[in-house]
């Protein structure tokens, strides 16, 4: 019997890489604690959507929570930096940064929100897809309508690229593209695949505007109940689950990419991203306001 059972929330369903990674973490933790500490997972948003489960984690009702950075942008300002468009040059660049001192700094910043940042997971890289034409330059974006999440930064990013941003629930995107209410949307390979959007939006431009990691946090209240030794065990098990998650994610991404390519989607890979990045200057000016965040941006850009 487990002495301590940590309840862990995820909005993704069972079998999704993040859920599997936390399962792996649970097994590792059980072994390292000689069977004393276990993890119980509530997948598929059983305990609520991310905004709600974050609050519940702060209250100490949920012990562990796998969340996107988006809902944290207003609560932990440091999370805005890796959420900036075109901040990372590639997935490898993102890994290097988040595994390094900047990543540690962001994890530490969760303390200000009664949370303990444990580790980062991959959220994939998001690119634009549409039903109209292959986008090869910024000029192609002009006047096109893209669905975005209800987020100010997404709206500002799409506007800065010269397109129209349309906030809309995810479930309505498919038929809206089909009926021409919008021209396209933006997402990563697996979502582009599982949503079926590739069936109606056959042009995918790999501009990788967002490579935003996700985060595993722990409730400060639950954390403080653990002995320092157990805290170290939890921290270590979380860190060790990240490579597991990344492998699963890459396999999933590869499978989706193969399926989508086989379906005859036209994929644009070789675009010059420089004008896209230059167009982000006003967005950076709006969201990167204090010196701390500015220095973080500079350090990320300087990271090889």
């Amino acid at each position: 019997e487990c002495e301590i059972t940590l309840k862990s929330s995820d909005t993704h369903p069972d079998g999704y890489p993040t859920v599997e990674a936390v399962k792996a973490m649970g097994e590792a933790l059980k072994t390292s604690s000689d069977g004393r500490i276990c993890i119980e997972i509530f997948a598929s948003a059983q305990l609520g959507e991310e905004k709600d489960t974050i609050e519940q984690t702060q209250f100490g009702v949920i012990d562990l929570n796998r969340v996107s950075l988006g809902p944290f942008n207003n609560i932990v300002p440091e999370t805005q930096v890796p959420s900036l468009p075109y901040i990372f040059r590639s997935v490898d660049h993102m890994h290097t940064v988040m595994d390094g001192p900047v990543g540690d700094e962001i994890l530490a910043a969760f303390a200000g929100a009664d949370l303990v940042g444990l580790t980062f997971y991959d959220g994939g890289s998001r690119s634009f897809y549409n039903s109209e034409k292959p986008i090869t330059s910024m000029a192609d974006m002009a006047g096109m309508k893209f669905r975005v999440m209800q987020s100010d930064m997404f709206v500002d990013m799409v506007s800065a690229l010269g397109a129209n941003a349309t906030p809309m629930p995810y479930g309505e995107v498919y038929s809206s593209i089909q009926t021409g209410v919008i021209d396209g949307a933006e997402n990563n390979w697996p979502s582009y695949d599982t949503s079926g959007h590739f069936e109606v939006a056959k042009y995918y431009t790999l501009d990788q505007h967002l490579i935003v990691p996700e985060v595993l946090v722990m409730s400060k209240i639950s954390w403080d109940k653990l002995s320092p030794e157990d805290q170290a065990l939890v921290k270590q098990a979380a860190k060790d689950s990240t490579p597991v998650m990344r492998d699963l994610w890459q396999a999933q991404e590869k499978a989706s990419e193969d399926k989508i390519r086989a379906a005859g989607v036209e994929i644009v890979t070789d675009i010059d991203k420089t004008p896209f990045i230059e167009a982000m200057v006003p967005v950076y000016e709006k969201y990167v306001t204090d010196d701390k965040l500015k220095s973080m941006v500079e350090r990320i850009q300087a990271t090889e």
């Binding site: 609520g48 959507e49 905004k51 709600d52 609050e55 519940q56 209250f59 100490g60 009702v61 629930p169």
Partner: peptide, 19 residues
Amino acid sequence: GLPPVVVFQRLNSGVSVFA
């Protein structure tokens, strides 16, 4: 022994659904 505030958070989120 959990914080009751969760009940009211769920109540508020439960009705704050666009659909």
